[in-house]
Design a protein around this nucleic acid. Structure first.
Length: 465
DNA sequence: AGCACA
């Protein structure tokens, strides 16, 4: 324990530190007395007394190293030793660089997080969105939301503090992805602390509290609403879809969107716009059912292989888009008498513009051959298109669950599902060889739901870019 | 009189 030389090693080898270690203190010593002792030498930022088994040691931390040096130097050459309550105290530099107060457990890790959502008003962020966001890190047991002066807050309970910590580390200071929010909602930054709670007392399932461990908990009447089965949105259904495009590495044109969304029915109108530094599109179908099918089939899918241009679909509040002019920002396929910008060749001539007054049936009228190249295709129902990488052909992507409305059964296949060729004009538009990476064909890539969650905040970087 | 989980 002692040094080889017979003298304690620590005696002359302490490097300077802002922290001074004091010993031989009276047990009753207080922080005030430590401050009195050290104050003449500088600014004391922290003290700690009653340290050690005998509670007769203490620490003083100065704001500046030179102040600690001044105190040590003074008493090293002083005839009067440092004293507290008449007792000589011995000083030396501490072997630590700062006083740490582990007594303060205000921010101790907990399995319950206190989440403050900044920049929102009541109802902007549903409990289901929070559940989705936090479920990426583990099973969420309970959520309780409330409004305080601090704003919209939520307590999110995990099974243990490790999971809670990982969620906190990943999400604190970040924002809820735009596509989880309704159109009008601004950026929602999460500020996350550990709660002092360990188990929330959720009395019933409601729009403000949930217990995911107890499916038999009574449901508050106020919670029975029009939320969809996924519960992500409170928005009512609409024939107009709002598409947010995530990870948009490549240009997404109206023609591309038209191609993709036409697989489900006649697309009446499309409008593109930038919002909140993101890229969004409104796609108008003749009816809610068609929009519903497209929404469910395409949600989370990528337009391009490699996770690029992932679609996130919600119902718009619009029911009829006002497209005044056909250009690269807006398109009206209903054949109304509106102006057309001349530098949009794909709109002219053979562009598949159905007759005026077209209904969902009119999507059959798109002037493509029903079958091309003699390639027989799987039976309807078909939903989204999928490009075969090797052949460049488009293969059908099955709808997962629901049945199609009657009018979509036994119809000729939509143009996407045809092997070759597309109309020359459109062909060039949708193959997007100029935007896809070399050797990669445009491709509809379904991503599993869990992966979607994983990607929420950390979109993949394509090809090492 | 000799470095803090408190």
């Amino acid at each position: 324990m002692s040094s080889i030389s017979g003298q304690p090693q620590f005696r002359y080898t302490q490097p300077p530190s802002k922290v001074i270690h004091l010993r031989n203190l009276p047990w009753e010593c207080t922080d005030e007395e430590l401050i009195e002792l050290g104050k003449p030498f500088g600014t004391i930022v922290k003290t700690k007394c009653n340290v050690g088994a005998n509670r007769n040691q203490a620490f003083i931390e100065f704001a500046d190293l030179n102040q600690a040096i001044a105190m040590i130097s003074y008493y090293a050459s002083s005839a009067e030793p440092a004293q507290i309550r008449g007792k000589t105290v011995y000083l030396q530099y501490s072997n630590r660089q700062e006083i740490v107060n582990n007594k303060v457990t205000a921010d101790a890790a907990s399995n319950v997080l206190l989440v403050t959502v900044e920049g929102v008003e009541a109802g902007d962020v549903s409990i289901d969105v929070l559940h989705l966001v936090f479920s990426a890190f583990g099973f969420v047991h309970k959520i309780a939301t409330f409004e305080k002066t601090a704003g919209f807050q939520a307590l999110v309970q995990f099974s243990d503090s490790d999971i809670a910590s990982s969620a906190k580390n990943a999400l604190d200071g970040r924002s809820i992805p735009r596509y989880l929010l309704q159109e009008h909602v601004g950026p929602c930054t999460l500020k996350i602390n550990f709660s002092a709670h360990t188990d929330l007392n959720v009395k019933f399932q409601s729009h403000r509290s949930r217990d995911y461990t107890n499916p038999y908990l009574p449901v508050a009447p106020s919670a029975i609403d029009i939320a969809g089965q996924d519960g992500m949105k409170q928005e009512p259904e609409s024939n107009v879809l709002l598409a947010s495009i995530e990870n948009m590495q490549y240009t997404v044109t109206i023609d591309v969107l038209h191609e993709v969304f036409s697989a489900f029915g006649f697309v009446q109108k499309i409008a593109l716009f930038e919002k909140n530094a993101g890229f969004q599109a409104l796609i108008q179908y003749p009816d809610i059912q068609t929009a519903n099918i497209a929404k469910q089939a395409l949600e989370g899918h990528c337009i391009y292989e490699g996770g690029f241009c992932k679609l996130h679909l919600t119902y718009s509040r619009h029911t009829d888009l006002n497209v005044k002019i056909n250009n690269d920002r807006g398109r009206d396929y209903t054949g109304g008498n509106i102006a057309t910008v001349s530098n949009q060749p794909s709109l002219l001539g053979p562009q598949p513009v159905p007759m005026p007054g077209a209904t969902v049936h009119s999507y059959n009228s798109i002037p493509y051959p029903a079958i091309s190249n003699g390639v027989s295709l799987p039976q309807v129902p078909q939903a989204a298109a999928s490009w075969d990488i090797r052949s460049g052909a488009m293969a059908p992507l099955q709808l997962h669950n629901q049945s199609l409305p009657p009018q979509l059964h036994n119809q000729p296949l939509p143009p996407h599902l045809h092997n070759q060729p597309l109309h020359p004009h459109l062909h060039n538009q949708i193959h997007i060889q100029h935007v896809a990476p070399p050797g990669v064909a445009p491709h509809m890539m379904p991503l599993p739901g869990q992966r979607r969650q994983q990607l929420l905040f950390r979109p993949p970087q394509p090809y090492g870019h």
